[in-house]
Amino acid sequence: MNIIVCAKQVIDPEAPPASFKVEANKVMPPAGVPPVISPFDESAVEAALKLKDAKGGKVTVLSLGTNLLRDVVKKPLSMGADELVLLEDPAFAEGDSYSIAYALSLAIKKIGAFDLILCGRQAADWDSGQVGLGVAEILGLPSITLARKIEVTDSKAKVERINPDGYDVIEISLPALITVSNEIGAPRYPTMKGIMAAKRKEPVVWKPADIGADPARLGRRAKLVKLFQPVREGKVEIITGETPEEAGAKLALKLREIKVL
């Protein structure tokens, strides 16, 4: 079974909220906090490795971006993925979901045969949740979003898709594209063996010309007019007491006093 996983490098979404800064419509990378693979993309890697554990096969990871730190983008390799393909070029810097899905689909065609493409449900930076579906649309593949479990039998996959009240069990014909949510289970830790193998492995790097990308289609359809940080007026009233117990009880009294209770 051949699986392609699209995984993106992002600013660490778990960095302290106070370190988050926007300047001139751009997000400033927080000082001293290295980027990470977008967490849902790591879930997609985990889903791929679970299938590989069960069925054997090959997992190829595809990452598109600029300034891709090798230590970061190689993490899926150290978790157990087999190949890493990077689409790294300044021409990809200004892309949106449309141009990125376009470039990824060209790269996937160049990689060749696959049974399944997995993506994270949404990237932790723009929270768009569109690229995976765009790749499916461009490649003419059926798709399921928000998977919490994937089982493959013959030429089909049985997928549990989460919804607010539980989940639906959906069958899909392969090849297909599936986006993965964190409910798939915690991504595995890299093993020592995996880390050594990842160190030795050189990623394949492709430029727009290598995948035959039309430069005109690497621009944006969704135009960013403005990026700003919403102001949150902080005016918390901390309730104190002689003892912590007293503080807890006084909070209840306070809420009664202001008629919240």
């Binding site: 909220p17 949150r232 902080g234 005016k235 918390v236 009233e237 901390i238 309730i239 104190t240 912590p244 117990e245 007293e246 503080a247 807890g248 009880a249 909070l251 209840a252 306070k254 809420l255």
Partner: peptide, 18 residues
């Protein structure tokens, strides 16, 4: 930063009293 009211402390102590 977003709460209106708060209590600082171990919830195991403050919450039961609340």
């Amino acid at each position: 930063k977003v709460a209106h009211y708060g209590v600082v402390g171990d919830w195991k102590v403050t919450l039961p009293a609340f």
